[in-house]
Design a protein around this nucleic acid. Sequence first.
DNA 1: TTGTATGCGTTATCAT
DNA 2: ATGATAACGCATACAA
Lengths: 319, 319
Amino acid sequence: MTNIRDLAKMAGVSVTTVSRVLNHHPYVNEEKRQAVLEAIRVTNYHKNINAVHLSKGKTQLLGVVIPFSDHPYFALLLKGIAKLAFDHNYKLVVFQTDYLVSREMEALQMLKHKQIDALIICSRTSDMAIIEEHLPYGAIVLCENLEEKRLSTTFVNHYKIFFDALVYLYNKGHRRIGYCIGRKSGSNSQHRERAYRDFLKKYKLPHHPFYIMDECFHFEDGEKVINRIMELDTAPSALLVTSDQVAAGMVTCCQNHNISIPGDLAIIGFDNEPIAKMMNITTIEIPLVEMGKNLFLQAISKDVSKKEMSVKLIERATV
Amino acid sequence: MTNIRDLAKMAGVSVTTVSRVLNHHPYVNEEKRQAVLEAIRVTNYHKNINAVHLSKGKTQLLGVVIPFSDHPYFALLLKGIAKLAFDHNYKLVVFQTDYLVSREMEALQMLKHKQIDALIICSRTSDMAIIEEHLPYGAIVLCENLEEKRLSTTFVNHYKIFFDALVYLYNKGHRRIGYCIGRKSGSNSQHRERAYRDFLKKYKLPHHPFYIMDECFHFEDGEKVINRIMELDTAPSALLVTSDQVAAGMVTCCQNHNISIPGDLAIIGFDNEPIAKMMNITTIEIPLVEMGKNLFLQAISKDVSKKEMSVKLIERATV
DNA sequence: TTGTATGCGTTATCAT
DNA sequence: ATGATAACGCATACAA
């Protein structure tokens, strides 16, 4: 494996000069430059990037933490991140956590070990205390609305979105409204729960614990939801479903069970994933690719920033 | 940023001793070990992994090339890879290529630059000549049935699968059978095309170019296929669809257009993705997660191996 | 059991 | 414009 010193010897120049032509620095005689280039050519030389990283203290590597890679929500986020990463010559190390803290810790460890320059956590599992502890080692970007002054975030206002969607359903005549979320513990879910409670209070509607369903992530989970609803004495007449995947699963399942949508059950999905368009599902569009792009920019930026993205209700056939 | 030398000074030992306790080597006095540990504790020390990489010439990083991250086929492959990567303490650098050669080259470059130890290419875009050229820099694993003796592969027998599926449809009475694939140029597609031609020949069926549709990857593409079929004078009575995503899109679209499945159109999907089960789609199960695991093992192995995985027809309601 | 010295391949500083 | 040399932080052969 030929190195920069070998090149220097071959071209009859110093390593510094070699380094200069390698990095397109000015102040190098054209003849010598050609000599170096020739040495590079004959030896089929190429840099050992690890040496560069050690010397520079940077890796051009960005960590991205997602719970699942096979979910459109995160795939679209990733798409936005990857787009800008490519443009800025960054590579991505993807951590698929399945919501396990241990996996997320792995990413944090890599930041500490300087193997990645910064870390984007699309959905956090570990405590904020742990996150903050790792802030000295590099930028950490999150997707939540947080007070913490030392880290950047890109998010949507889940409280407002949820509240508005609930009011929308109320105005359509619905009085028995439930919702499906992913994890119960996520901070986004807490905002949603607060919105739900505030909504019930404002409109003097009774609280029905069975109308709240968690662990809804994938297409298949839509089936579980419908099955559970069918067992209820008084089923909800409308559901807010925080993923079009799950909403699509519900629509499919309802067809099998001859449940009419929106007649028997109205559904509002989230994200405006491609499947929502095809299945004509009313949904709340979240600009995931744009969010991904912003996350990347925040990750490589020296400054801390907070960015709220706006969403859009797309009225289709399930309400 | 404290380093190994600082620790040595603080603990009153040599850097070698520090390195020994850091790497859990034997032959180190317990007292000194404690002294080093104490120094590590008070300084909150942690290794600079880049230095380790430079010194060792390895990174514990594995590259994975996929065209899309938001497609279940590749997501499941990735899941299998990620599972074993975690167990073996490897991290993954994911390259999402969108089938662009330039993106794939990026991955190859990283291999050349020793930033990744090996590379798994789940769907190849660049020429084999380019791939072979990079073989000296690390293991490259592919998902095709290849002769090349210097690289490992994990694959399914696309020729046989296609041929058998066509015969299956024939035996069900179908005489106008078409198929949908992703890229026309991929080597897997070539095997399929050969199977199709051989099938037509054997059963003396006419070749109808319009029965072959490419660029079918995602859910939405199912709609395109149905629209195209509806414009045909004599539409196919059955379709082999190389992704359950697309098959699901077709089923959904057919419902909107009152096209009966399997009455008007029979469909066999591929992969046995979760959506196929929910929508009751007849499909050919490919053990993607298992394939992913095998790909990983091949990537870190010193030996070259070829592994054919077997598939299973799952009969459901679309044929 | 421990330490010295050197290698890993590059970049950066400083002098000329 | 060019070069010598010192970082960068760790691993390891060899000596003791």
